[in-house]
């Protein structure tokens, strides 16, 4: 464990908590893409299947459980409890356009052709593009609530910090996982224009609006 990975995990946890609290306290999921949340729940499910078979540490197991519980709780709130506030008219990205190619790629490019490893690879590739429905929704509505932009900033920062962690681990342990690194770079690049808008607008107290 290194500080970059720890900060990355905390940033990820912060993002998940921000979103869950936003939906719970405002009793509304306006502006949030339910499809992205379903994809994130799928990412955690396919990545943490080894939760009970491969014990790494208390921290690792606890975080996996928290991510799983929070992601399913978010999906539940969006599609059941606060379904009336779910903006399905703007959340129209076709998830199958992501899941099918990612599933195929996971079969072709992986470290080990075993079910668990292919599912892990699938989760890594899927996580890289899982935010697209959310970014697409914001581009359609042309704006995002400030709390949603904080959520996205924390979520984007988590994988950016992981990239620093991978550089650190390469130089200190000689460890590198090319699949995670390439997918992590793609994932972080997808946030770039959002990062620009966040830093130039939200941090100056303005509403996050996309140029029409």
């Amino acid at each position: 464990m290194n500080i970059f990975r720890l900060l990355g995990d905390l940033s990820h946890l912060l993002a998940i908590i921000i979103l869950l609290l936003k939906i719970w306290r405002t009793r509304s999921c306006a502006g949030v893409s339910g499809k992205s949340q379903i994809l994130f729940a799928l990412v955690f499910t396919t990545r943490y299947l080894d939760l009970f078979t491969n014990f790494i540490s208390m921290y690792n197991s606890a975080m996996k459980l928290i991510y799983l519980v929070c992601s399913y709780a978010t999906v539940f709130l969006m599609y059941f409890k606060f379904k009336a506030t779910y903006d399905s008219n703007h959340d129209t990205f076709r998830m199958e356009f992501l899941v099918v190619p990612v599933g195929g790629l996971a079969f072709l490019v992986n470290h080990d052709f075993t079910p668990l490893e292919i599912l892990w690879t699938f989760s890594i590739y899927l996580e890289a593009v899982a935010i697209l429905p959310q970014l697409f929704m914001i581009s359609k509505t042309g704006e995002a609530e400030t709390i949603t932009s904080h959520y996205l900033f924390a979520l984007g920062s988590y994988r950016a910090l992981y990239i620093v962690n991978w550089v650190f681990r390469f130089y200190t342990e000689g460890f590198f996982d090319l699949i995670a690194i390439v997918a992590g770079c793609v994932q972080t690049i997808l946030y770039c224009d959002f990062f620009y808008l966040y830093i130039t607008k939200v941090l100056k107290g303005k509403q996050l609006t996309l140029p029409a």
Binding site: H12, D50, I56, N60, M63, K64, H111, W120
Partner: peptide
């Protein structure tokens, strides 16, 4: 080693 068999990252 690239991509260890056990993935120790979240």
């Amino acid at each position: 080693p690239s991509g260890g068999e056990t993935h120790d990252e979240l």
